[in-house]
């Protein structure tokens, strides 16, 4: 359901990515320099992705043992809204009660426009569209914007990730992109779900 047919905003080629300094170049070459790797499909690339993800998150997240000790409460996509109608979404009591607190959510990182991100969109299911490349009318209503302490490159497209951080509610427009969000997590930790 592409909003603008065939005329999505130009995107930077993968070759043109700026990689964050926090990831050593030897891992970047593993991740991005092999076109074969990208076209080999999810099944065969799975093991490589897992390795890349692990290494990325290891360097990003730092000390897993310490982070695991925080008492973040689990929030599921299905628990965010207490009611919905044509007149808008009503936030659930659970969501409202968690505002300002540490939460853990699982979802998928939507394909980003920018190669390095200081925020990304967490969705319930993998997105078929590059959300920033089409109009925001294409977004599902239940999304969470995740702001990051340090920029990251896009994570693998088809693996559930777990986000931990402080929950914030209320309409906010991102200064740089103009993206409007309602539910945000200021992430302190990202990792692959199911670890």
């Amino acid at each position: 359901m592409t909003e603008e047919r065939g005329r999505s905003r130009p995107r930077k080629n993968r070759a043109g990515f700026d990689f964050p300094k926090i990831i050593p170049s030897k891992f970047l070459s593993l991740k991005f320099n092999s076109s074969k790797f990208f076209f080999s499909g999810p099944k065969t690339a799975g093991a490589l992705w897992a390795l890349v993800l692990f290494l990325t998150l290891f360097f990003l997240g730092g000390r897993p043992a310490q982070a695991a000790a925080t008492a973040a409460k689990t929030l599921k996509f299905g628990e965010m809204y207490g009611g919905v109608s044509s007149l808008g979404i009503v936030l659930s009591d659970k969501l409202k009660s968690l505002a300002g607190q540490a939460v853990v959510m699982e979802g998928f990182m939507a394909p980003p426009l920018k190669p390095t991100l200081d925020f990304f969109v967490l969705t319930r299911v993998p997105m078929s569209l590059c959300p920033f490349c089409s109009s925001d009318a294409d977004w599902p209503s239940d999304i969470v914007v995740v702001y990051l302490e340090k920029p990251v490159t896009a994570l693998p497209f088809d693996r559930p990730i777990r986000v931990e951080g402080r929950l914030e509610l209320g309409t906010k427009t991102d200064g740089e992109t103009g993206f409007v969000s309602l539910v945000r997590i200021y992430a302190t930790r990202l990792r692959e779900a199911g670890d």
Binding site: R14, F38, G41, K43, P111, S128, F157, D158
Partner: peptide
């Protein structure tokens, strides 16, 4: 389930659409 999902600039077949299907 959508037929393909985006990985960066490239649409890749979505196995969730038909887990036992052929590519």
């Amino acid at each position: 389930a959508p037929p393909a999902i985006m990985s960066g600039d490239v649409a890749i077949g979505n196995t969730r659409r038909a887990p036992k299907g052929i590519l």
